[in-house]
């Protein structure tokens, strides 16, 4: 075999495919950031809900988490995108992708944060109760900060996996990086080359996302910044 690699299509003056790749990359980033923010919020809410005193709420959250964790993201996405459309809810592919990713990542986030909450010792909670803190104050001032600090490595790992999983959203024609790659492939027939480029872009995004999380941890957790020890 003597395959000739040819990346020149990237700079093809008529098509400037590198622009398409850049544009797709930007949409992937947008999709990822939106899903992280929304998914973290929903996931934290579910984690808090799963410590509630209402058994019905706890059970509902447990079922949601089990269903999400035991089915593929792609099937969840098809179910939402085609299913909701069939009963009259029409979303753009981008919106549908954000919803599917959020619903998916929130289940994992919820499990991770719940394990963090369970790691907070009972004495801490009794101390806070004894000081007269309300349930909400106790949660936001005493329980969640160390809980989230402890599980941050798992959370950031999970968010990186989700960023990589946005690549499947091309299946409902979300115009992100993979969709751009697929279109370029069909126009240039340089499949191997284009996916090498795409792989490098995702690797760079992975490194950037990990770095962003390290930065966030540095900014959000002053104790760790000063002592460098796990809380």
């Amino acid at each position: 075999m003597n395959y000739q690699f040819d990346f020149s299509f990237l700079w093809d003056p008529d098509n400037s495919y590198w622009r398409d790749i850049l544009h797709g990359t930007w949409l992937t980033v947008e999709l990822t950031l939106l899903a992280i923010v929304l998914g973290f919020t929903l996931g934290a809410a579910c984690a808090i809900g799963s410590t509630s005193r209402m058994p019905a709420l706890r059970r509902a959250i447990a079922v949601y988490v089990e269903v999400i964790r035991n089915t593929p993201l792609l099937v969840q996405t098809f179910w939402l995108f085609f299913g909701l459309a069939s009963i009259g809810f029409k979303f753009s592919a981008f919106t549908a992708a954000v919803i599917a990713l959020t619903v998916n990542i929130a289940a994992y986030t919820s499990e991770i944060i719940r394990s963090g909450i369970e790691s907070v010792r009972k004495g801490q909670i009794e101390a806070a109760e004894s000081l007269g803190l309300s349930r909400m104050q106790l949660l936001f001032d005493v329980v969640l900060p160390p809980a989230i600090e402890r599980v941050l490595p798992s959370l950031s790992g999970q968010f990186v996996l989700m960023m990589l999983a946005t690549s499947i959203m091309a299946q409902i024609s979300t115009e992100e990086l993979m969709a751009a790659a697929s279109r370029i492939q069909s126009e240039t027939f340089r499949g191997f080359e284009i996916y090498i480029v795409v792989a490098v872009v995702y690797l760079a995004l992975t490194v950037a996302l990990r770095f962003a999380f390290a930065l966030l941890a540095w900014a959000a957790f002053p104790r760790r910044r000063r002592l460098g020890t796990p809380v």
């Binding site: 009794e126 101390a127 000081l131 007269g132 803190l133 309300s134 104790r223 809380v231």
Partner: peptide, 19 residues
């Protein structure tokens, strides 16, 4: 049962400020 993520001062001021 001090709160590990807060400084000594923050441990002490938390309840007066919140409650």
């Amino acid at each position: 049962n001090l709160f590990p993520h807060l400084t000594v001062e923050q441990n002490i001021t938390l309840a007066p400020r919140r409650v």
